[in-house]
Design a protein around this nucleic acid. Structure first.
Length: 661
RNA sequence: GCUUUCGUAGCUCAAUGGAUAGAGCAGAGGUUUCCUAAACCUCCGAUGAAGGUUCGAUUCCUUCCGGAAGCACCA
């Protein structure tokens, strides 16, 4: 809608002798300021050397004269005869009919108000379009011939043998919403997860398992346990290994050996899968028992799978999935790429390592291959990126959803990849802020972590107690289902409602809420609306009978209707700026509007007891009246449309709706 | 030291340079013989400091104060 209004204003401005200006049109938050508003007069004041009010009045007068000459079905604008503009002109002429009046307000705002017929038509359109309402295909678009963009989103990336904590949960929640926004806005998205399955953290974990007797003896028992117990065991082994690494020099030496053995294992694993695994011989780095490679290989592979199986349960619980999993163990050929890059003078050797000297580019200097010959994260990226950019054909964009601490890393690898001709300006580091503990820092080494699963379970418990308080007759299974979905909603919403890059100071009581501006509030509002519709027993086909011309909307109804009109604009904005929080803010205001309406007015007139219920309302336009049955029909349509938009919006956040709760 | 980033109500957060800085939680008070009270209504309460640009600044620029992250062999 914004776009159409902007286009309309553009033609008016051209008339006034100001072509080539694209007016910015905004949704008015305050209904008193119209449904849409523009500040174009204020912006043009200097250029035109006229007062903003004069410009605004001129624009408004021009618009009003167009409105009065526009008859239904008549082309309002016919100054342009370019074919491709005809459909836009149609849109514009329809739009002109939808405008009720235009206000010009000091210092120079132009506020546009829609007719009630236009708002009511939107209600019906929402119902007709269903889940497609607010997606690309239903928005006025000039560029139909533009083909779908192919975007890869790389996210989640937990490390095997380490915990899946609330930071990962925020990552996956943010990215999932991002992906759905991109898809809604007409992109094809490839979901990719890059998981760290080699490195020191694993060496520490495996050292714990193999060298600390209390762990080693438990391995056979643990094998029979659940994945959850397996990863908890791994976590403890990791913590013990880390302590040994810091406190015992001998252990440290051995862990460094383990690291080499793990790289060797990864290399063997990659080769077995037919993946290029680099020419470097990692066994040569092992100072101690080189024969241990067999044992380590088996243990690494087994425990790695424990982690992966566990991660899968979480992905499932939060409703995410991946098209492709990449592993660091597949990226060892990056060492050779780094050596090639040295020949190309992109990287250089220094103190036995291969580095990128960043100063000439204003970037940090970073190590790609360390002096032992092991690839760092940077070198692995040189193997990963080419794979990502070729495996699925041409990518328009690759978005890395990663924390802010990696900013320097990405700036460097993007630059290096550009210099090597792997990509140019196709990658984006999408930063999401850390989840910190309000009291103290998270560290999986000390066990001071909030696990993702723990958070979901705590939230679930909380929902249970709320569920107990309401006198519902749900079965145990229903309760479990409701509690789980509401818990996931609460957690996800708490992450999504803040802007992505802001840090979250996590505190269970404060951060995850179930009332007010929260996920469950929206689910509850949806369930309420659905409940009304179930009770009405009136098929929605009755919607055809609504007489737009005699519709009168009270302020609460109008507030909802205008929000429904805004939805596609909000999705467009959120998709363009990649900000799920925009959707949260919108949905909450829609929920509030509906709940206020719900409290103040009776929807199903047959209850007949609501004191505020008005049976007959007189339309502003003419002397036709809305009968009680018209009013109920309208309110049911409004309810159905609100439910639909809540559902569509929640889907974009990765939150499921519940028919009752 | 350099780079990046943040500072809004008691707490957690909103606000492409626009209109009276919005919410939620907490606190005080109220709403249920009636469609789900996980709801609704009322009250209380804020832009770290100082300059600058602008018709107009929470937003842009400068300085200061205070927090966070990164800056060579971790991922």
């Amino acid at each position: 809608m914004k776009h159409a209004i902007s286009f309309l204003l553009q033609s008016v401005l051209t008339d006034l002798g100001v072509p080539d200006v694209v007016p910015e049109v905004e949704i008015s938050d305050d209904p008193k300021h119209g449904d849409y508003t523009t500040n174009i007069a204020l912006r043009l004041s200097k250029q035109l050397k006229k007062s903003p009010m004069d410009i605004a009045l001129q624009v408004s007068t021009n618009l009003k004269s167009q409105i009065s000459t526009t008859k239904p079905g008549h082309q309002g604008l016919n100054r342009s005869n370019q074919d491709q503009k005809i459909s836009q002109q149609k849109t514009v002429s329809l739009l002109l009919q939808d405008i009720d009046h235009i206000d010009v307000v000091p210092p120079g705002f132009i506020n546009i108000f829609f007719t009630e017929a236009a708002l009511s038509r939107t209600i019906v359109r929402v119902i007709k379009d269903g889940e497609a309402y607010g997606t690309r295909s239903f928005v006025d678009t000039q560029d139909k011939q533009v083909k779908k963009k192919k975007i890869m989103v790389e996210y989640a990336h937990p490390n095997t043998h380490k915990s899946f904590h609330i930071g990962h949960l925020r990552n996956i929640t943010t990215a999932e919403s991002l992906i759905r926004l991109l898809e809604a806005w007409g992109s094809q998205v490839i979901r990719v997860n890059y998981e760290g399955d080699v490195g020191m953290h694993i060496a520490k974990a495996l050292y714990g398992l193999m060298q600390i007797p209390s762990f080693k003896s438990q391995i056979p028992t643990i094998r029979t346990k659940t994945v959850k117990e397996k990863v908890e065991f791994l976590g403890k082994a990791y913590a013990a290994g880390s302590t040994a690494f810091e406190e015992d020099p001998k252990a440290k030496e051995q862990i460094v050996d383990y690291n080499a053995l793990i790289y060797a294992s990864a290399q063997r694993f990659a080769r077995e899968k037919g993946i290029e695994a680099g020419s470097f011989d990692y066994i040569s780095l092992v100072k101690g028992n080189k024969d241990a490679v067999g044992t380590i290989y088996d243990l690494w592979k087994e425990t790695r799978q424990w982690s992966l199986d566990y991660f899968e349960t979480i992905y499932k619980r939060v409703g995410s999935h991946f098209d492709r999993y990449y592993f660091e163990s597949e990226c060892l050929a990056g060492v050779d790429s780094a050596r090639e890059a040295v020949k190309k003078k992109v990287l250089m050797e220094s103190e036995g390592a291969i580095i990128f000297y960043g100063k000439p580019y204003g970037l940090d200097t970073r190590v790609f291959v360390n002096s032992l010959g092991l690839p760092t994260y940077e070198a692995k990226e040189l193997a990963l990126a080419p794979a990502e950019f070729t495996e699925f054909g041409h990518l328009d964009k690759l978005i890395h959803v990663v924390g802010p601490e990696q900013a320097s890393f990405f700036k460097v690898t993007f630059k290096v990849e550009e210099l090597l001709g792997i990509q140019k300006d196709q990658q984006q580091h999408y930063i999401y802020g850390w989840v910190k503990l309000k009291h103290g820092k998270m560290s999986s080494r000390t066990g001071q972590v909030v696990l993702g699963e723990w958070l979901l379970d705590e939230a679930k418990k909380e929902i249970y107690t709320i569920l107990q308080k309401s006198n519902s007759n749900y079965t145990k299974e229903e309760q479990d289902m409701i509690a789980d979905k509401a818990a996931v909603a609460a957690v996800k919403y708490s992450f999504l409602k803040v802007s992505p890059q802001s840090e979250i100071a996590f505190d269970l009581g404060e951060s995850v809420s179930f009332e007010g501006d929260s996920g469950p509030y929206l689910q509850y509002t949806y369930a309420r609306a659905r409940s009304v519709l179930r009770k009405s027993q009136i098929p929605m086909t009755k919607s055809q009978e609504i007489h737009y011309d005699r519709v009168f909307l009270n302020p609460e109804e109008r507030a909802i209707a205008r929000l429904l009109v805004f939805y596609p604009d909000v999705v467009a904005d959120a998709a363009k700026t990649l900000s799920p929080s925009t959707i949260c803010t919108y949905l909450f205001s829609l929920g509030q509007a509906y709940n206020l309406f719900y409290a103040k007015h009776s929807i199903l007139r047959d209850t007949g007891k609501a004191s505020t219920y008005q049976g007959v309302r007189v339309s502003k336009k003419n002397s036709d009246t809305m009968t009680p049955s018209d009013t109920m029909t309208l309110r049911l349509l409004l309810t159905a449309a609100t439910a639909q938009v809540l559902k569509n919006g929640l889907y974009l956040l990765g939150i499921e709706t519940l028919e009752q709760m």
